[in-house]
């Protein structure tokens, strides 16, 4: 299974008991693969992305998480629905939109959203490393 999120594409395990649950409309992710695939991390206070933490509703915890012999899993689709993150999938390729709360808080504070991209010369460019300097950012393409 392939997960596309936040400019990254990662391979993630598929629930081996999937055929029994017949649940192809939900993205189930193994908790230990969750950070690499989506950026979210499970902590005692809930699911956290950087400083943003969202508690899982107690009433849904049993439904959204499951333990199998492969490990613990989260029904990420249900979680994404709750936080308003949109998802599109085609076969076993899943694509996740930006997290709306992250986008909106960036708009309110006017702090530039941070990103990390590879430079043409092979270096890694992280926008927040340029604090203290004025930055002009511009996009173009060949088409």
């Amino acid at each position: 299974m392939i997960v596309i999120a936040d400019g990254k594409t990662t391979e993630a395990a598929q629930r081996s008991d999937d055929h029994e649950t017949d649940d192809h409309e939900n993205l189930w992710l193994k908790l230990d693969e969750l950070p690499a695939a989506t950026g979210w991390q499970m902590k005692p206070e809930g699911a956290c992305l950087g400083e943003l933490c969202v508690p899982l509703p107690e009433s849904k915890r049993a439904e959204w998480t499951v333990d199998t012999e492969d490990g613990a899993w989260l029904n990420y689709s249900e979680f994404a629905d709750m936080i308003g993150q949109k998802q599109a999938h085609d076969g076993d390729v899943w694509s996740l939109s930006s997290v709306p709360e992250v986008r909106r808080s960036g708009l309110e504070s006017a702090i530039a959203p941070d990103f990390e991209v590879a430079e043409r010369n092979g270096d890694t460019l992280r926008l927040s490393d340029l604090r203290g300097r004025k930055v002009v950012l511009f996009t173009w393409s060949s088409w």
């Binding site: 400019g7 986008r103 702090i111 203290g132 004025k134 996009t139 393409s141």
Partner: peptide, 20 residues
Amino acid sequence: SLFGWVNLPCAAWIDEQGRV
């Protein structure tokens, strides 16, 4: 996607404090 831009060429200015 992060900046919510819908076309190009497109640009932003970001000041020393990281504010757009």
